[in-house]
Design a protein around this nucleic acid. Structure first.
Lengths: 193, 193
DNA sequence: TGTACATCAGTGAACGCGCGTTCACTGATGTAC
DNA sequence: TGTACATCAGTGAACGCGCGTTCACTGATGTAC
């Protein structure tokens, strides 16, 4: 077929995007190479022209997910006073939209309990991405004058992640909404936002 | 072989215990029927004398896990003033031991992000178990005179679950310890314990 | 300018392994007579 | 009391499916001459 120079890179991105979607939705064990390729408009045989193995795909998919998460953090917080930035990030993280849209959003909430079972590059991508998110929150807290912003940021991130996980396992939508609202209220109160 | 009347029930409990262990450690997708049976000292063929399917096993294993979690909550909080009870539960939940011992402990931290992918009885067992745990915490908060204990309890449970998940995905033990300590400190502070 | 060849992303059949599930069988012991 | 039969938890071989991985092939287009 002979495509132009960037064709392969574009295809790879398409596969990665679909893999990230499938990974959040179905978890590492149920991401099927053939399904991902089909989702990207290809057949499974071509997979190994782009990735060395399913593990290799997962590692890069996790990195992609954290790039998205970081971009989302920037988009919600850049060029805003820290109080407003943090309020907006919390509101977005604990929003019904984030709770319902399981094929997008925070990788930690989507895959958190699978991480201890991951190894190598996939696991490392997770560690690094998480640390970066915590740093982002710590930066906002520091600007707000919070004492020990590093400590406070992991506590805040814990409640965000835990709150979203609990909301997603609630019995019905009403309970999920109530749970998200409870965490939002408590976070705003304890951070005096 | 013809065993006594309770033999089968005992064997079933042994299989369930091993399944719960494997489930926390490896996740629903990687629990292998043959491995669980071997762990219980049996061969895989006998499995269907005890359970209708792997799904059936998982549902009962989840129920078992939450019975353990509830028992652990009772053990840590019964016959104590509410302040001490809550302090002890938080200290135990966010302890290095709980963080390291992934084959035991809280099912929500071990499987939280897998729950949205579960269905039927397994999922329901999760919902009910989680609600019961939240109620337990709410009861202690009510005794402490916390305003809106129901709201506060899900917020606390969120930070507990999120904190343990984040600690388990930390890059090394020192970081995990620091993260657990941060959540403990912040929780005690915001609950004025 | 035209022709033969090289390239390489993508195709689809095939392989092999892991694992859930089935099934004929075992053998110790309880029960009927 | 002794004997024949029934019971049933547990065994281990076998089946079949899903899925990761391999591989020979395709065919459009770039390149060498």
């Amino acid at each position: 077929m002979r495509y132009d120079a960037e064709h392969k890179a574009r295809t790879r991105q398409r596969v990665l995007k679909e893999a990230a979607r499938s990974l959040r939705l179905h978890g590492p064990a149920h991401v099927a190479v053939a399904d991902v390729m089909r989702g990207a408009g290809l057949t499974h045989g071509g997979f190994y022209a782009h990735f060395a193995s399913k593990d290799d795909l997962l590692a890069h998919a996790v990195a992609t997910m954290f790039e998205d998460a970081q971009a989302s953090f920037e988009r919600l917080t850049a060029d805003k006073p820290p109080r407003e930035a943090l309020r907006d990030y919390i509101a977005s993280y604990l929003s019904p939209r984030h709770c319902t849209g399981r094929d997008a959003g925070c990788p930690i909430a989507a895959l958190g309990s699978d991480v201890p079972r991951l190894t190598g590059a996939t696991r490392q991508a997770f560690e690094e991405g998480t640390a970066l998110l915590a740093q982002g929150i710590a930066g906002l807290l520091a600007q707000l004058g919070t004492p020990d912003p590093g400590e406070a940021s992991v506590s805040v991130l814990s409640e965000l992640v835990g709150g979203l996980v609990l909301a997603r396992l609630a019995a019905d939508a009403a309970q999920a909404q109530a749970l998200l609202a409870a965490c939002r209220t408590q976070l705003l109160k304890r951070l005096q936002l």
